[in-house]
Simulated assay, not measured.
Amino acid sequence: MFFYLAKVLWFVLQPSTLIALLIGYGAILIWTGWARWGRRFVTVGAILLLIAGLSPLGNALILPLEDRFPRAGIAAPPPPTGIIILGGAEDRLVGSARQAPTLNEAGERLLEGAILAHKFPEAKIAFSGGDAGVLYKSDSEAEGAAALLTQLGIDRDRLILEADARDTYENAVYLKKELTARGELDLTKRWLLITSAYHMPRAIGAFRQAGFWVEPWPVDYRTRGSADLTRPFDKVSEGLRRVDVASREWVGLFAYWMTGRTDALFPGPDEGAPDCAPAAPGATPPDSRPACPDRPSP
């Protein structure tokens, strides 16, 4: 129920839709006895369209999300046990029809997953993503991801596919259940989480709430950093889309927190850590937690 309600509410509440409704409603009123109000609505809508479409507003909204989690330190041992890739990088409706890979602007999730898979040849690769379509159904993202990853040279035996999740919280819950059943989940093992940088706070919060400690590996950055706080957009459509993407994450964080799907309103790097972390002889744990007792301490 949460999944469908979120889809419907966000379609109505996203900034681009609200602006379009404001202008459209105003245009209708202009031809009625409420013409003065119609002109006001159209004027306000046009101003909001220009602000959202051309100003750096979208960058200002998305930058705190992207900067919230730095990449985990993977140079020091122990190496990752596994690498988690969240869905959202494919258009399976087109891909299944064309029988071809159809990556969208979040395609770095799969690309970076393949790069790390080759860098850590012993690590498992877990992908979580089902069919999140409402009006148009397709096969699961997991099927497309498996085909692409194997074509990129990843052994099929290394892949762990979860094909039922439709949102971030389900990614965490279903993947934890799958990995626990396989004996791949305990405090002695390191799992990296790959998702878009702006999506990482909500993803980390959902995984922590599900009792699954992961280390962030953000990708798909949309900004260079604070320098983009003064960079206007040269296309209204791009600026408006940036505002939509960022707003969706902020609203998603609030909704997840209100419904108990995240452990904090704005999850941070040091919140909710378990009592210990995996470590190898002669090495320090990958974060501030002490080494787990079933592994030798430095």
Rank of each mutant, 00 (worst) to 15 (best):
W10S: 05
E108G: 02
L110G: 01
S96K: 10
S226P: 08
S96W: 12
A89F: 04
T284A: 14
D186K: 09
G24T: 06
P267V: 00
G33P: 08
L49F: 13
W10Q: 07
W191M: 14
P285E: 07
K124N: 06
L161K: 00
A72Q: 04
G272Y: 00
P79F: 03
K176Q: 14
E66W: 03
A20D: 09
R156G: 03
Y256Q: 10
Q14F: 00
G130A: 03
A283Y: 01
D270E: 15
G130F: 06
V42E: 08
V94F: 06
A142H: 04
T195W: 02
K7M: 13
R109V: 00
T284V: 11
G53Q: 00
A255M: 12
R248Q: 13
T32I: 00
P278K: 09
V134A: 11
D186S: 13
A142W: 07
E162F: 10
I23S: 05
A142C: 10
A89M: 11
G82I: 03
G260K: 04
V219D: 07
E143F: 13
A142K: 06
A126I: 06
T223M: 04
T195E: 04
T150G: 06
L192I: 09
L179R: 02
F207T: 09
V243I: 08
P286W: 05
D270T: 10
I30T: 10
L21C: 12
D139T: 14
W10T: 03
K7E: 14
S16N: 05
G113S: 08
P216T: 01
L61S: 09
G205I: 11
K119S: 12
L49K: 07
M200Q: 12
